[in-house]
Simulated assay, not measured.
Amino acid sequence: MKYSLLVAFLIVSLTGFAQNKVINPGAVWPDDKGNHIQAHGGGIIKIKDTYYWYGEERAKGLDPNYRYVSCYSSTDLMNWKFRGDVVKMSDPENLGEGWILERPKVYYNKPTKKYVMYFHLDTKNYQYARVGIAVSDKPDGNYTFVKSFRPLGHQSRDIGQFIDDDGTAYLVFEDRELGFHIVKLANDYLSVEKEMSLVRMPLEGGAIVHYKGLYYSIGSALTGWDPNPNKYATAKSLEGPWSEFKDIAPPDTKTYHSQSTMMLKVVGTKSTTVIFMADQWKPDAQWDSRYLWMPLEIGDGKLWLNQPKPWSIDVKTGEHKFIKQ
Rank of each mutant, 00 (worst) to 15 (best):
N142Q: 14
N125C: 07
G84P: 11
T123W: 03
G84A: 11
L101E: 01
Y115F: 13
S148W: 05
L95S: 04
V87R: 04
D140V: 13
S136D: 06
P92F: 10
G98S: 07
P151F: 05
K113M: 00
K105D: 13
Y128G: 00
T144Y: 15
L152Y: 09
Y143F: 07
G98M: 10
L95H: 10
M78N: 14
E102H: 14
F149V: 08
R130T: 15
Y115M: 06
L121F: 07
S74V: 00
D137T: 14
Q127A: 07
F82Y: 08
D76T: 10
F145W: 12
A134Y: 03
S74N: 09
D85K: 14
D76E: 05
G141L: 08
M89A: 14
N125I: 01
R150N: 15
D91T: 09
K147D: 13
T144Q: 01
P139Y: 12
F82H: 15
T75Y: 11
N94M: 03
K124R: 07
R83F: 03
S74E: 06
D122V: 01
G96A: 09
V135E: 07
T123L: 00
S74D: 00
S136I: 11
S73G: 06
P111I: 07
G96K: 08
G96I: 04
K88M: 12
T75F: 10
N94C: 14
Y126H: 06
L152V: 08
L77P: 03
K138L: 13
K124H: 05
T112C: 03
K110E: 15
E93P: 01
M78F: 00
N109I: 03
K113N: 08
G84S: 05
V87F: 03
N109Y: 09
A129K: 14
R83I: 05
A134K: 01
Y115I: 09
M117D: 00
Y115V: 03
P111F: 08
K105P: 01
F82C: 12
V87Q: 02
V86C: 00
D76G: 06
W80K: 01
Y107W: 05
V146S: 10
Y107I: 02
Q127C: 04
V135L: 09
M78V: 06
K113I: 13
K105V: 04
R130P: 12
N125L: 04
D91S: 01
P111M: 04
K105Y: 12
N109G: 04
A129W: 02
H120S: 06
F145E: 06
P104G: 02
Y143K: 10
K81Q: 15
W99E: 05
E102Q: 15
P104C: 04
P111W: 14
S90D: 15
L101V: 00
G141V: 06
S136M: 06
Y128K: 09
D122L: 12
D122H: 07
W99K: 00
K110W: 14
W99L: 11
L121R: 01
R103Q: 03
K88Q: 10
Y72E: 03
S136E: 08
N142I: 13
Y108N: 09
Y128P: 11
W80A: 05
S90N: 11
Y126N: 02
S73F: 08
G96F: 06
V135N: 05
Y107L: 04
L152C: 02
V131T: 06
D137V: 07
E97P: 10
